[in-house]
Design a protein around this nucleic acid. Structure first.
Lengths: 356, 356
DNA sequence: TTGAAAGCGCTAACAG
DNA sequence: CTGTTAGCGCTTTCAA
């Protein structure tokens, strides 16, 4: 029985060097693949390392280099398939470059986001991909960049901050959504989003560089084209929980002249809205039309199949990762993945009901 | 202009100590909250650290302590809402204990899993939560444990390996599923799972300590109760991709006596199966009955609403995290979260069609 | 191409 | 309660 029951000390560079009969520095160079090493030393070291089962201690490596081989990903809600899929894209893309992903969920809470970035920085992640929950409170992101960590924004951009941003331009798609609905005869079009804002929506309000801004603007533009105006009270933001979403639905439907169509800003919202509609016994599209953003498999399986705006979420994740890798000095394909949104017409849009 | 343009050196313990006029050790103790420090020194140090904006370097800390403040989570497919939700549970639970989550996706590939565990170990994660993709090839998990890292298994257990395992017992629920279908008059019940095996299913095959094993056994048991036998060719495993899933569906439906009911082992499978059924123009439940595992919101919104087996995925994640935290010496509630699966009858099960 | 030696920032003995 | 002193395992000057 040995003196100490410590869990089998791992082999270190020093151990390998000793076993190979070379200096620690040479062993480290051979193992790490940097610096100049002779054939002979190389094979000696390789042999010794295999024999000892040497595995580099990443923490020690990070300690000296000042950065780890992981990147931080900060999102508002992993439960949302949108982020799940994006995460997959990011993860797939950085793996090849040897990075691992540290994930933090913020519940779309700014303080949590600030804390997460802080923590990740203390962990010395090489870079960050963040889907910021605010488009105004962004000091923490700027400072991360200043502290020498690459930062890439996902989905939502930020005015006046020079950060790579990966997002789809929804101007076109949103305009199409607006026209589709308007052409079908709708005038009372509801819009529901989880985007947090300080107050209710007002026409021309600055929604930041968010997809929501694009989408709202597109509908507004369609109204303008039709020489009509969109009632701003039909834009329901801050629907980030079951309760707030329920409130938004009530706001839209329990009014003298209820919305005849509703646009759901993401698939989670859509799920909630559909539930509400079902519980109220409303039929789609006879009683109410629905359009949702994000084309996930289930949207085609509900009855009726949903008309949606598809976006290449997985590729967006990959592109975000590539942007980050570029910043980190890795070689990645120069050409960007085409990130386009497009309307997929199915069967959830119809004419407003007679009685309206 | 300064000599070097290095990105603002971060304040260190030494800096704080100097500013506070105390020794490095004292400053470290005050900052780290360990050891004995006088009130006076404490406030001096706190003041200095705030003044300098000191942030502990987690890497250095990990370097000395031998473990980081992050845990590794290894899953087969984050895209699967099942893991997405579990991840959320894990993440929420460990956050309070000060841990961060390093996520690795393996695509249900054993080599990838082995590599992931290796990498995570090199990163000195404090512990691991893994949903193993094989119930036999598990040397890497055992060795991780031996190397002093806590390992908790998720969903799938492993025979003969003493590892904490968090999983739901499906015996009851599966039996109920079998009875439900048998009572409705079905005899040709298909079962589709992504579980990888070396060959086709054979009665009594060892599916390991996996939920799939429970679920198949439950149906078998129901058959036994009914003094009947389940055709093993109706159990389709290895449906882990679009192609393999399509093949499984074809196998079930393109036979002289096609399955009249199909049980989907998870929500991803269900999505695929539903798509196939729809494409074939089959009606549910008139032409074919469907039962799925995992009760995600969309299952209630399809037409007809799906009869499912619900399982507390989020809580399973939390429980896995708690098990890990216990191993790591943290205080967590002693009582376990109740992890029970239950059948939710909706409208996707009916009698087999006449012609069958 | 090689080796010696100096840290990276922190924690942890060990003395006082 | 406090300070001194070693490292942790790796990378990286700097000379040879």
């Amino acid at each position: 029985m040995t003196k100490r029951e410590q869990p089998v000390r791992e082999a270190t560079v020093a151990d390998v060097a000793r076993a190979a009969g070379v200096s620690k520095a040479q062993a480290a160079r051979a193992l790490g693949g940097y610096g100049a090493v002779s054939e002979q030393v190389l094979s000696l070291v390789i042999a010794a390392s295999e024999q000892l089962g040497y595995r580099p201690n990443q923490v020690a490596r990070s300690m000296t280099t000042g950065r780890s081989n992981s990147i931080g990903v900060v999102v508002g809600d992993i439960e949302n398939a949108h982020f799940g899929l994006a995460l997959r894209g990011i993860s797939d893309e950085v793996r090849d470059a040897g990075y691992t992903v540290v994930l933090v969920n913020t519940d779309e809470d700014l303080d949590a986001e600030v804390g997460a970035v802080q923590e990740l920085l203390q962990q010395r992640v090489a870079g960050l991909v963040v889907a910021p929950c605010s488009s105004t409170q962004t000091a923490h992101l700027g400072s991360a960049q200043e502290r020498g960590r690459a930062v890439v924004l996902f989905d939502r951009g930020i005015h006046g901050l020079e950060l790579d941003t990966v997002r789809v331009d929804f101007a076109d798609a949103a305009l199409q959504v607006g026209r589709l609905l308007l052409d079908a005869g709708h005038r009372r079009i509801g819009y529901v989003s989880s985007l947090r804002t300080d107050g209710p929506y007002e026409p021309g309000a600055d929604l930041g560089l968010s997809p929501v801004a694009d989408r709202v603007r597109g509908i507004e533009q369609a109204f303008t084209e039709a020489e009509d105006e969109w009632d701003p009270t039909l834009v329901q933001l801050n629907a980030f929980s079951d309760d707030t979403l329920a409130a938004a639905c009530a706001e839209l439907l329990d009014r003298p002249a209820p919305a005849t169509a509703v646009v759901c800003s993401d698939s989670l919202i859509a799920l909630g809205v559909l539930g509400h509609i079902k519980r109220r016994g409303l039929r789609i599209p006879e009683d109410i039309s629905v359009v949702a953003y994000d084309d996930f498999p289930w949207t085609e399986l509900v009855e009726p199949p949903l008309t949606v705006v598809a976006q290449p979420v997985y590729d967006m994740g990959r592109e975000a990762a590539r942007a980050l890798l570029r910043r980190l000095g890795h070689r990645v394909p120069a050409e960007r993945l085409p990130l386009r949104a497009h309307l997929v017409e199915r069967a959830s849009v119809g004419a407003p009901s007679e009685e309206n």
